[in-house]
Amino acid sequence: MKFFKNNDNLTALEAQYEAQKIAFAPIIFQVARVMRDLKVLKTLKDFSKEGLTLEELANKTKLSVYSIQVLLETALSANIVKQKDELWFLTKIGYFIDNDEMTRLNLNYNHYVNYLGLYNLEESIKENKACGLKVFGEWETIYPALSTLPKEVKKSWFEFDHFYSDSGFEQAIEILNSLNIKKLLDIGGNTGKFATLLSNKNSDIEITIMDLPQQIKLAKQTIYEKNLTNISTFEANILNDDTNIPTGYDIIWMSQFLDCFKEEQIIKILTKIKKSLNNNSKICIMEPFWDRQNNETAAFCVINTSPYFTAMANGYSKMFKYQDFEKYLQKAGLEVEKIIDNIGICQTLILCK
């Protein structure tokens, strides 16, 4: 394993300090978010050369001196800000919290989608059920609920999902176009983002989006708004025993879809798909495998998405380690033809037959 090596080389005091960072992580998280949303970090950045006193920062942000002091002192302990004499400055960490797109989306996603529900993580771990989802309503899984979630929750969920998946679409489409395909089935096509982009790049390909009725409703709206004539839809729950995979496609495409299921379900889905293939068909699977990332930051982000699946999404799925996922492919009787890493920000593309 290339990530998270030598992670036990601390002294006892250093280890204890790291443990306290974890114990107080929820507080630091919310302080960082509030400082971002109330423009405290931006104000410090705007005066990055001269710095600001406590009183000056309170005045410019229209917050009380007490409020600014509470925020700054916690931020100081988390290296978000620094102090020189009576002046306060933004650090590099503070700059990323306020300006980095990935950090912004991760923070919004964890605040709006996960924060309240993760209180129920212990219950979810014990029951393999999305017990945290009850903060938004009574659903077994989050997927049928996506279109009706509160505005900020839905917005944050889709922005997070699209940021990590969409970054790989352009490169993936180049690979697909090199295969000279005529028909593609997009299983788990969600809002139709990938299908729309593929259609714009190659209007000769017949594309079918297969997903749950709630997602197909969103996809149909996208197709209608963009007046796309080469995209059709197929409503189905792929896990139902009486659901068969449509046949006659050159490519079965799945992007960040299989990580929504547990092992036996994944094998069941892949086995169904295998039965629908002809001799020249291929399966293309795009997933962010944490052990195939090109840096530890990416691996960290991918791994720490898994508790969302446990507490909020369904209670039983997670982000994959490729070494585990490869076993699912083998159990379904599929052969890996090619693996392409570093697609977009964090994706790996697997071509199977």
Rank of each mutant, 00 (worst) to 15 (best):
S167K: 07
P288H: 10
L10Q: 08
F163P: 00
F4T: 00
I205T: 03
F257D: 08
C284R: 00
D166W: 01
E50I: 12
D259M: 10
I339Y: 03
M35T: 01
E123V: 01
L76R: 01
K275R: 11
I343G: 00
E127C: 06
W139M: 11
K220C: 05
L105E: 07
S77C: 12
F160K: 13
Q83N: 11
D186N: 07
Q83V: 14
A332N: 07
S255W: 12
Y316Q: 14
I80W: 01
K327G: 03
L228K: 09
E14F: 07
D242T: 06
N237L: 01
A236C: 08
Q69G: 13
T348Y: 03
N278L: 06
I231K: 02
S306M: 08
I238G: 09
K193P: 03
E296T: 13
I209H: 03
Y143C: 13
D324I: 01
L239Y: 04
P246C: 08
T43K: 07
P26W: 09
S124T: 00
N304S: 12
G188Y: 07
A130H: 07
N314K: 14
F320T: 10
T61W: 08
Q16W: 06
T53V: 13
K134C: 03
N200R: 14
F3K: 05
G188K: 11
N9V: 09
T91C: 06
I340Q: 01
